[in-house]
């Protein structure tokens, strides 16, 4: 699986020829709230360059945007990995934040623990996770309190 790995630190010399997918990786900075949402804009741009249809691009960018914002607001940032195959796009958002104690509850529309200062920016409607589920074909949340959360989403093309 690790045919293509593009992180500078891991392996600067990349073997591209073996891969049948494109991997895009981003560090999501939890300290810098003003840059939240930038990774999904970059993903959108790359998908456009690869000629994916606008509807697919919107699904990916909306669901990734919500997940990215969640990582910044609720988990001090993390890592986003987007694997692009020609028939599906797999988004993995992994953080080492506080974890989600009750995933079913968190998935309910309207449930939010967002602090007030974030709410004043328009976040905290408790719609992020439900939207992510709505816009993707598959979604899986793995979370352990005190360890972190990994959200995996698949959008079929």
């Amino acid at each position: 699986m690790l045919a293509a790995c593009f992180t500078k630190t891991d392996c600067p010399e990349v073997v591209c020829s073996m891969a049948d997918f494109v991997r895009l990786e981003y560090d999501i900075d939890g300290e810098n709230f003003t840059s939240a949402g930038e990774a999904s804009v970059k993903v959108k741009r790359s998908l456009r360059q690869m000629g994916f249809d606008p509807e697919t691009i919107r699904k990916v960018s909306v669901s990734m945007y919500e997940g990215e914002i969640n990582m910044v607001i609720h988990a001090d940032g993390g890592k986003a990995t987007v694997d692009i195959y020609d028939d599906r796009i797999v988004i993995v958002l992994a953080d080492r934040g506080p974890g989600i104690p009750d995933i079913d509850l968190a998935m309910q529309a309207g449930y939010s623990t967002a602090p007030d200062n974030i709410r004043s920016l328009g976040f905290g409607a408790g719609m992020g996770l439900p939207n992510m589920a709505k816009y993707t074909d598959e979604m899986k949340i793995e979370s352990e309190v005190g360890v972190g959360t990994t959200v995996t989403m698949v959008v079929k093309v």
Partner: peptide, 10 residues
């Protein structure tokens, strides 16, 4: 396009 994108990223 995907091949080119892989190269661009690399």
């Amino acid at each position: 396009a995907m091949r080119m994108m892989r190269e661009i990223v690399a």
